[in-house]
């Protein structure tokens, strides 16, 4: 099987803090990590390779330093890595990103399955997977928590708000997986050595994967960011006073007043 996994390097948003004085993001000292659910996608690819043979190829779009993220997944056991890096790609929204990834995947060649993480923690859009599936004309199964492949079909459990759906699609297909799908492995010492000494990261500019210049980067993006701001603070609340009994009674009175109970 040829398994393609798109991955993204993201700032670790749990480290992101707001400067209480200026109300802006403090970006200094925020480490870059491989997007967590992309690690689940890589792990699922590696498991499929172990079960069915073949190779796992990762593709990432980002600045040159995204190479670190690719080294990390190579150390997990990924076979090949492509980094799409070009100033012309900057500012891409999800559609322009999905377009660039689709061109790169077509340039890499034939494949059986594309596995994406459900969403990236910096933007939380969950849009690149389905938009990539549309560019590649593939059936998609999103929010996947379990994957089985047999007889050229994928059978996947898809998480819904109120349960799970088991969906079948013919390969090739695109899946977006959630953190429930598996527990990503840690790189081994041998893996880390191989990732740095033996494995090469193919660095591609927009021309290398035959992207139409007007469909990439900011120019190829239908959506633009107009402004960013800090979430507004909430009006101050009231602390109830008294014994537990008095406070309980007071609360019921207040909630009844507000027609909440």
């Amino acid at each position: 099987m040829r398994i393609i996994v798109p991955v993204k390097q993201v700032p670790n948003t749990t480290d992101v803090r707001i400067d209480p004085k200026t109300g802006t993001l403090i970006r200094e000292g925020v480490e870059s990590i491989v997007n967590p659910e992309d690690l689940n996608a890589v792990e699922e690819g590696l498991k499929l390779r172990e079960a069915h043979g073949g190779e796992v190829i990762v593709v990432s779009m980002g600045p040159p330093q995204a190479e670190e993220a690719l080294r990390e997944v190579l150390a997990m056991g990924v076979d090949e890595a492509y980094l799409l890096t070009d100033k012309a790609l900057a500012g891409a929204d999800t559609l322009a990103t999905a377009y660039s990834l689709s061109r790169a995947i077509r340039s890499i060649g034939e494949f059986d399955v594309v596995i994406c993480g459900r969403q990236a923690i910096d933007g939380d859009t969950a849009q690149v997977g389905p938009q990539l599936a549309e560019f590649l004309k593939l059936p998609q199964i999103t929010y996947v928590s379990k994957v089985d492949i047999e007889d050229g079909n994928v059978l996947a459990e898809r998480l819904l708000e109120d349960g799970t759906e088991v969906v079948r699609a013919k390969l090739p297909a695109l899946l977006t997986v959630t953190k429930e799908v598996n527990r990503p492995r840690y790189p081994t010492m041998g893996g880390i050595r191989a990732a740095h000494r033996e494995k090469e990261i193919h660095s591609w500019g927009a021309e290398d994967f035959k992207a139409e210049p007007w469909r990439i980067g900011l120019d190829g993006s239908p959506t633009w960011v107009k402004k960013t701001f800090s979430p507004p603070p909430k009006a101050p609340g009231q602390a109830l006073k008294g014994t537990p009994k008095e406070m309980g009674q007071e609360l019921v009175r207040r909630l009844t007043e507000k027609n909440l109970i």
């Binding site: 700032p11 948003t13 749990t14 992101v16 803090r17 707001i18 993001l25 923690i121 910096d122 933007g123 939380d124 239908p222 959506t223 633009w224 960011v225 107009k226 402004k227 960013t228 701001f229 800090s230 979430p231």
Partner: peptide
């Protein structure tokens, strides 16, 4: 919409399509 885990809000427009 919120971004960066809700640490910042962004206003997005779709000017040309």
């Amino acid at each position: 919409r919120p971004a960066f885990g809700g640490n910042i809000m962004a206003t997005i427009v779709c000017p040309r399509s």
